[in-house]
Simulated assay, not measured.
Amino acid sequence: MNTIFRKSVLGVAGLAFAGGVFAGPVAAHADVTPVRGTAVAVQADKPDTSKLIPHGVQGAQSRIDLDDEQVASAKAIIAATKKAGMDERAAVVAIATSLQESKLENLGHLGDRNDHDSQGLFQQRPSSGWGTVEQITDPEYSTLAFLKGLKQVDGWQDMPLTEAAQTVQVSAYPDHYAQWEQQAADLVAQYWNS
């Protein structure tokens, strides 16, 4: 065998091995029946990151460890986003907003520590027309209410996350939503197709 041909064969074999090492677990779960002589594409099981963070993250990022209840809240936001017919980016905006407002905890009335009458995942206020206490502490309802507001923001898809979230939430701290964008995108990537 000539040297160039041998190097080519070994290079292809090396790529095939490396691809198997890195893609092995994904391919092991894929329902694929290979046909001799043809290449088989395996669909990625996670959304495209460029759709999740189209503008890149803005500023320093925060991250918290989530317990089972918080993960369930993230999954509920994703399910409601799908129900609303919105895409992964809408879920990222919603989860980042909830991370800022409640750390993905479905908060009831906090007494003296409460910010007015804010409650639920998004700290929505019954007195501001978001719904009843029972409604805004229901994760699906509160997410759909947030997304309804987001849909009314012209061009929200092309805005930085913090600007889109602030337009819906009208927070006293409008720039704080941005710090949760990476964790929100990671949660959407992890749970969108589960």
Results as ranks from 00 to 15, higher is better:
A30C: 05
S142V: 03
A23H: 11
Q135A: 08
S142L: 03
K46G: 05
K7E: 04
I77T: 06
V71A: 05
A41V: 14
Q166K: 02
E69G: 15
S98Y: 08
H29R: 13
A27V: 14
K83V: 09
F17W: 01
A84H: 04
F146G: 02
E88V: 09
Y141V: 01
P47K: 02
Q166T: 08
Q157F: 03
V153I: 13
R36I: 08
M86T: 07
G120D: 00
L107E: 04
L121A: 10
G108M: 01
Q166R: 05
T33P: 01
T143A: 05
M86S: 13
A165L: 03
T3V: 14
L99V: 00
A185F: 00
G155L: 07
T81V: 11
A165M: 10
G11L: 11
E163P: 00
D45I: 03
Q135R: 09
P34G: 06
K151E: 14
G14Y: 12
V92A: 02
S98F: 07
I95V: 13
T137C: 02
V40Y: 12
N114T: 11
D68Y: 04
K148T: 13
V26G: 10
D31F: 02
H109K: 12
V26M: 13
G120Q: 07
K46L: 04
I4L: 04
S171Q: 04
A172Y: 04
T167I: 02
A94Q: 09
M86Y: 07
S98G: 10
W130H: 01
N114M: 03
L121W: 06
S98M: 07
T49F: 15
D48K: 11
K51D: 12
L52N: 06
D186F: 04
A164N: 06
Y173V: 08
L52K: 12
G56E: 01
Q152V: 00
V35P: 02
K75S: 00
D115P: 08
Q100I: 06
D31Q: 11
G19H: 08
S142M: 01
W130N: 00
S127D: 06
Q43W: 12
A44L: 13
Q183W: 03
V40C: 14
R89Q: 13
N114A: 14
Q61W: 07
S62F: 03
A145D: 00
F146H: 01
G111A: 00
I78A: 01
D158P: 00
V188F: 04
V153M: 10
N2F: 03
V133K: 15
D186E: 15
E101A: 00
R63L: 08
D138T: 14
H55M: 03
R113A: 11
P54G: 03
Q61H: 13
V133G: 09
V133Q: 15
D68F: 06
P139Q: 03
T132M: 07
S118A: 10
D68R: 05
E134R: 12
T3N: 14
V93Y: 07
D112T: 11
A145S: 09
G56P: 00
A60L: 05
A84N: 02
